[in-house]
Amino acid sequence: MTDHGVAAAAGDREGLDVKVRSQFRLALGRFLRHRVAMASLVILAVIIVVAFSAEVITPYSFDGMNLRAARLPPTLEGGHLFGTDKLGRDYFTRVLYGARTSIFVALVVALLSTLIGTLIGATAGYFGGWIDDVFMRFTDLVLILPGLALLMILIAFIGEGSPLQIAIILSSLMWTLIARVVRAQILSMRTREFVEAATLSGASAWRVIWRHMLPNMLGPIIVNATLTVSSAILIESALSFIGFGVKPPTPALGQLISDGRGAMQTQWWLVTFPGLVIIAICLTINFIGDGLRDALDARQAQRS
């Protein structure tokens, strides 16, 4: 309450602009924002490099058992940073291999959904007509049917799948986000002067889209592709957790959590560490996405 009064008084003193916000604070905000994105980029790069060079980094193999070292809590001794499971397998190694699978799936999903989404979104936005109708009805459908359930039904066809299969199935629903973004951008650009000029000077539809419109919406596309990576990791983990994801013995983070669940009350590390890695990956990606949004879209950067 006193805080309130002080802020109000400060507002009165400064006249019309009541937002008390010094240049230093502004600069700090911008600085922090970029520093967070940069730090995230470094952390994510480290996670990816470590995950994809697991063979070199840990002396243990993914499924090498050692019953004498079973159920060890995290310890520096023997380098079991994340402890061991009931068969004495080094959990750090298992988490690295799991992260590798999950990152691979997410990157493929982002790539595929961006390609499909851009293509369909551009077609629907530029030409309209039945393609647009079908597209809009499909998005309606995704809005009224729970996506996770649809994915589980699709995955039920193949049992559990290889990482690539899972990635393709995830992409088959997740392209709609980018398609909606691209469609909206195209619609807003269609009547702009530079597009009309290009059309009038005889450029074909695809040339207009490809050369004139696409470069103008690279920002939103890149930002949403980045966010697709993190939601793909979350969705893939959830699916692997309930047994509709990557087929064992290929490890995935969600699957590790599911395996560790039975013993989680006594061996907390089995559930905790894979989850923390998921959070680390998603958090850094989202920060990077946020930084990119600010960097790529000057208007939004000023507003928030």
Binding site: S230, L234, G254, Q265, G275, I279, L283, N286
Partner: peptide, 22 residues
């Protein structure tokens, strides 16, 4: 809120179960 976006719900559920039981 950034952390909220990044947490897998199923993991958070298990962690809370561990804490509650302990």
């Amino acid at each position: 809120s950034f952390i909220g976006y990044a947490i897998p719900v199923f993991w958070l559920a298990l962690i809370l179960q561990i804490l509650t039981v302990n």
